[in-house]
Computed example of a mutant assay.
Amino acid sequence: MKINVNSTEYTLNVPDNTSLLDALRVHLNLTGSKYGCGEGACGACKVLVDGRAVPSCITPVASVQHKSVVTIEGLEKDGKLHPLQQAFLDEDAFQCAYCSPGMIMAAVALKSRNPHPSRQEIIDAMQGNICRCCAYPRIINAISKA
């Protein structure tokens, strides 16, 4: 099967029910998306599929054929961080940083739909993204300021 990841087309020889997360991490060596719960509930593995943040751990790779997949690695352009990546750095929104790729991808999806979300809209949009370090105030500030 062929999939488009970060504007590059790849051919994978994997079973259709292989998770997108496994395809990315194991077969394409794109390890930014993290395995968390394996049930699509924690958000650590979120990637963008046609602009929507989806949990890659429960998304079959076959379902993303003919779609555009963007991972955390695909946000950087010409050596420059995406504004949300930079905002997370500026606001010290990382602690252990395990959740950060998924948080950033969910925030990118939010900001593409709503460039100036309210604090409550940010909180609502980030439901399903868990930070075990409880850096939520800094994460919300980063998203607000990006």
Rank of each mutant, 00 (worst) to 15 (best):
S56H: 00
N13A: 15
R138L: 07
K80H: 15
P137G: 08
C57H: 01
R132E: 13
C134M: 15
R25P: 00
V61Y: 03
L28H: 07
G32I: 09
A93Y: 05
A93K: 02
E9M: 10
E73N: 14
T59I: 05
R132D: 11
G51F: 08
K145C: 05
E76K: 14
G32S: 13
Q85A: 09
S63D: 10
E39S: 13
A109R: 02
T18L: 13
A53F: 08
C133T: 05
P55N: 13
S7R: 15
V64C: 07
I123S: 07
C99D: 06
H66V: 01
L24Q: 02
K34F: 04
T71S: 06
I72P: 01
A135N: 10
V64S: 06
S33W: 04
V26Y: 12
E9Q: 12
P101C: 13
Q127M: 14
I123H: 03
Y136P: 00
E73A: 15
E91I: 01
V47L: 13
T11G: 05
K34M: 03
E39T: 13
S144A: 12
N114K: 15
K67R: 13
Q120W: 08
S56E: 04
A41N: 09
C45S: 03
A87E: 11
Y35F: 15
L75N: 04
N4M: 15
S56D: 03
P101N: 09
N29C: 06
D16Y: 08
G51T: 03
S56W: 00
G102W: 08
A135P: 00
Y136W: 11
M1Y: 11
I140G: 03
D92T: 01
K2W: 08
H116L: 11
L24K: 01
Q127R: 15
Q127D: 14
H66T: 02
F94G: 01
G36M: 06
E39Q: 14
D92G: 06
A142T: 02
G74Y: 07
P15W: 07
G74M: 11
I3A: 12
T59M: 14
L20P: 00
E39I: 12
N13W: 08
R119G: 05
K80R: 14
Q127A: 15
F88C: 03
